[in-house]
Computed example of a mutant assay.
Amino acid sequence: MSPRGVAIPDVRQQLFDAAERVLLSKGPSGLTGRAITKEAGCATGLLYNHFTDLDTFLAALFLDRADRASAGMARLPGLAGSGDMVDNLMGAIETLFAGNLLALAGLAMARPSIISHLSDALADGTLDMDASERAFAAYLRAEQEHGRIHADADVESLALALVGAAHQLLLTRGPQAPGLRDRMRKTATTLIAGVRPQA
């Protein structure tokens, strides 16, 4: 047990990770303060020592995972001109899968009260719902400059197709479904094959 006044290391991330596991196993209706703290192996009151209420906590969880995904996606444009394009894209897509953002977006829809907590982040740009699509587009434009994608290819539409395919697969199959990544790789391969310059 921690001494009085001494913070438990990484307690926020411990609670975030626990909430994510509960969300994926029980869905939005099973996401209660008690379920989260039980999953985290800590006292029920600990969550409320750090957050005003459950909605504030869940909004913070969403922002944390969105920030992680954005940081991962931001590295993608720097890979242009090196490696295999589909491998590069799949690395970025894995960031989206690992962040469980779609499940969290579904949570926000199931609990509209969370949205009011996210409004400030949306207004000041802290939360950027289009970050993934823009990162794909920036990467594909950079690949155009390297000559690995047709100069007249519509990279914005291609980026939207990649994000849409990833979200559709997550929505219909879940992040740990067998064959999910193989199906996404096949989709990315097909999309990229259509914009490669002819040998």
Score class of each variant (00 low, 15 high):
73 M>E: 05
106 G>W: 05
77 P>N: 07
80 A>T: 09
22 V>H: 14
179 G>C: 04
46 L>N: 15
184 M>G: 07
112 P>K: 11
158 L>K: 05
46 L>T: 15
22 V>S: 14
35 A>K: 06
24 L>H: 10
18 A>W: 14
39 E>C: 03
146 H>K: 12
188 A>W: 04
88 N>V: 03
184 M>K: 03
53 D>Y: 03
128 D>P: 02
143 E>T: 02
192 I>V: 14
123 A>R: 09
87 D>H: 04
11 V>E: 15
162 L>T: 00
104 L>Q: 13
143 E>I: 05
49 N>E: 11
113 S>Y: 10
118 L>S: 12
148 R>F: 02
44 T>C: 05
167 H>E: 14
98 A>F: 03
68 R>K: 09
11 V>Y: 15
26 K>E: 09
14 Q>C: 01
102 L>T: 10
191 L>H: 11
125 G>A: 08
46 L>Q: 15
36 I>T: 00
36 I>D: 02
126 T>C: 08
69 A>L: 11
132 S>C: 10
141 R>N: 14
155 V>Q: 11
134 R>H: 12
130 D>C: 03
53 D>A: 03
35 A>I: 04
88 N>I: 01
63 L>P: 05
199 A>R: 07
148 R>W: 07
129 M>G: 04
71 A>W: 01
13 Q>E: 15
74 A>L: 00
53 D>K: 04
102 L>C: 11
131 A>M: 10
85 M>R: 06
120 D>S: 13
29 S>T: 01
186 K>W: 01
127 L>P: 01
83 G>Q: 01
87 D>R: 06
99 G>R: 07
146 H>V: 06
157 S>N: 09
156 E>C: 02
36 I>G: 00
114 I>D: 04
125 G>I: 05
84 D>P: 10
165 A>F: 01
40 A>Y: 10
70 S>C: 07
112 P>A: 04
175 P>H: 13
21 R>Y: 05
3 P>S: 09
184 M>Y: 05
